[in-house]
Amino acid sequence: MISCEEAAEICDKAQYDEVSKWRYLKLRIHLLFCKTCAQHSKKNTQLSHLCQKAELHSLTESEKEEMKTELEKKTLVGKS
C-alpha cells in the first residue's frame, strides 16, 4: 500500500487531472483504509469545487508588475 505522503501527492495532482488512472486507483484503495487521508482528500476535492464555483479571476504577474510601475510613478510625483 502507498504511504500517506504519496496519497497526498496523488490527491493534489488529481485536482488538476495530472495523474494516471493506475495511480489514482492506488489512492482510492489507500483512502478505503486511511481515515485521515480520506478526510483530507474530501476537503481537497471540495476546495477545487469551491474555486470553480467562485469563478475566480486574477491578474497576470506582468499586469501586476505594470501596476506597480504605474503606482511608483505616481508615488514619485512631487519628489523633484
Binding site: 475566480l56 479571476h57 486574477s58 491578474l59 499586469e63 501586476k64 501596476m67 506597480k68 504605474e70 503606482l71
Partner: peptide
C-alpha cells in the same frame, strides 16, 4: 498594495463589470 490586494479587488470588479480590461483599469 499590488501584491496584497490587486487580485482581491480585481475579483470584485470583474464580478460587477464583466469587461476585464475595464475592471483592471478600475483597480489601477
Amino acid at each position: 498594495w499590488v501584491d496584497r490586494y490587486s487580485d482581491y479587488l480585481f475579483n470584485y470588479a470583474v464580478s460587477r463589470i464583466s469587461d476585464t480590461e475595464m475592471a483592471k483599469d478600475l483597480v489601477q
